[in-house]
Write a protein that binds this DNA or RNA. Structure first.
Lengths: 205, 205
DNA sequence: AAGTTGAGCGTACAATTGTACGCTAATTTA
DNA sequence: TAAATTAGCGTACAATTGTACGCTCAACTT
C-alpha cells in the first residue's frame, strides 16, 4: 500500500476512533455532530467527506465493526467454555468482561437498535442475528431441538443477555454480580423450559 | 377551575400532544426541538417556558403519562383473561392491540430506555418496574414461587414482551402474527422453565 | 520530467437552535 | 373599581450546524 493510501487509512481510523471515544452514557452516536467528530480526529470539518459520505455512513461502519469485535470476543469465551464447566455461566461471565472493556462498542449497538434510522436498526438487527443463528445451530445440534424451538430459544437467550448488558452499563460493579446471577437464572429457565417443551412435543408425536 | 387555569391546561395538553404526534419510527423525542414542538402546538417558542422548564421536563411528563396509559390498557386486558383461556395468549394479544393503537406511547418508552439521559432511563425503568412487580406478585401467589424466582421470571417475561413490541413496531401486520406466536412460545418456555426449577429446588429441600 | 490526482484546508453562508428581555391584554385578587 | 398577576408574543442574539467551493501541495502515474 502506497504512502498516500496509508495516510488516508490512518485518518479514517482516527475518525472512527474519535467517534467511538465520544460515546458515553450521556452521548449517543446520533447526538454527535460531524464537526465534533472531525475536531476530535484533528481534521477540518470538510475533510470528513473524503472518507464518509455523511455521518450515517460512519455510523454504519461503526456498527459493523462493533458487531465484529463483539463476536470475536465471545468466540474466545466459547473456547474457554470447551475446557469444561457450565456453558451458561462461562458465557455470561465472558460477556460481562467484554462489556466492561468495550462499553462503547456495546453502547452503539444498544442505542441504535431502537434508534431513529431504519438503516441503523437493520444493521444492528443483522449483527444480533449472527449471535442468534450461531446459538440456534448450536442447540439444534447439541440438544436435538426442533428448528422452530431452537430459534425461539436462541432468540430469547440473546435478548435476555443484551438486556442485562444494558442494565450492566448503567450499574456499579458491585451490582453487576447480582445482575449476572439473575441473568444466569433466567437463561437456565429458558433452557430448561425449552427442554421441557421439546419433550412434551416428542411424546405427543 | 378558573377560566385562566383552564386555558393554561389546554395549551399544556397541546404541547404534550404535539410532541407525541411528532414521534415516529424516524423521529425520537430527543431529536425534537423545542421550537418544533411549540410550532406544532401553535404557540410561540418562548411561551413553551410557561409550561415546562425545558424539553427534558416535557419528556419526563410524557414518559409518566405513557407508562400510565400502557398499564391501564394492560389492566383491561387482564380482565378479559379472567373470563378464561390462556393467560399468556390473551396478554400477548392485548399487548399487540395496545401497540397498534398507541405506537408512539410505546416508542418513547422504548427509545428513551436506552437513551442518553439518565433521568429518562430511570423514569422508563420505573414504569417497567411497575409491570415486573405486578407480574411477580401475581406468579408468587398463583404459582407459589420463591420471591427470587418469581422476580427473575417476571423480569424475563416483561423483557421478552417489550422486545417483541419493538420488533412489532418495525414490521408489517402480516409479520406480526408470526411474531406474536413466537413470543407466546418464548413466554411458555420461561414459565415452564421456572416451574421446573422451582420443583428442583423444592425437592432438594 | 511533466502531468494528474486527491487529501486536507480555509472561507463562506444559510438554517436552525435555545433563550433573554420587555410588552400586551386578559384574568384574578383585593 | 383599582391593582396585581401571568399566558402568550415578538424581537433579538450568539452558537452551532452541514456543506458548497476553490486552493495547495505532496504523492502517484505516465
Amino acid at each position: 500500500m502506497g504512502v498516500r493510501a496509508q495516510q488516508k487509512e490512518k485518518t479514517r481510523r482516527a475518525l472512527v476512533d474519535a467517534a467511538f471515544n465520544q460515546l458515553s452514557a450521556e452521548r449517543s452516536f446520533s447526538s454527535l455532530s460531524l464537526r465534533e467528530v472531525a475536531r476530535e480526529a484533528g481534521i477540518a470539518p470538510t475533510s470528513f467527506y473524503r472518507h464518509f459520505k455523511d455521518m450515517n455512513e460512519l455510523g454504519l461502519t461503526m456498527v459493523d465493526e462493533g458487531g465484529l469485535t463483539l463476536r470475536q470476543m465471545m468466540r474466545k469465551g466459547r473456547q474457554r467454555a470447551e475446557a469444561g464447566g457450565s456453558v451458561i455461566r462461562i458465557s455470561v461471565d465472558t460477556f460481562m468482561e467484554v462489556l466492561e472493556s468495550n462499553p462503547n462498542v456495546f453502547r452503539i449497538l444498544l442505542h441504535e437498535r431502537s434508534g431513529t434510522s431504519a438503516a441503523f436498526r437493520a444493521a444492528v438487527e443483522r449483527e444480533i442475528e449472527h449471535f442468534i443463528s450461531e446459538l440456534a445451530h448450536y442447540t439444534e445440534a447439541q440438544a436435538n431441538r426442533t428448528p422452530v424451538l431452537a430459534r425461539a430459544q436462541a432468540e430469547a437467550l440473546v435478548i435476555l443477555v443484551f438486556n442485562a448488558g444494558a442494565s450492566a452499563l448503567d450499574s456499579k460493579r458491585s451490582e453487576r454480580r447480582a445482575l449476572a446471577d439473575q441473568l444466569v437464572l433466567q437463561l437456565r429457565m429458558v433452557a430448561t423450559g425449552a427442554e421441557a417443551l421439546q419433550h412434551k412435543m416428542d411424546n405427543r408425536a
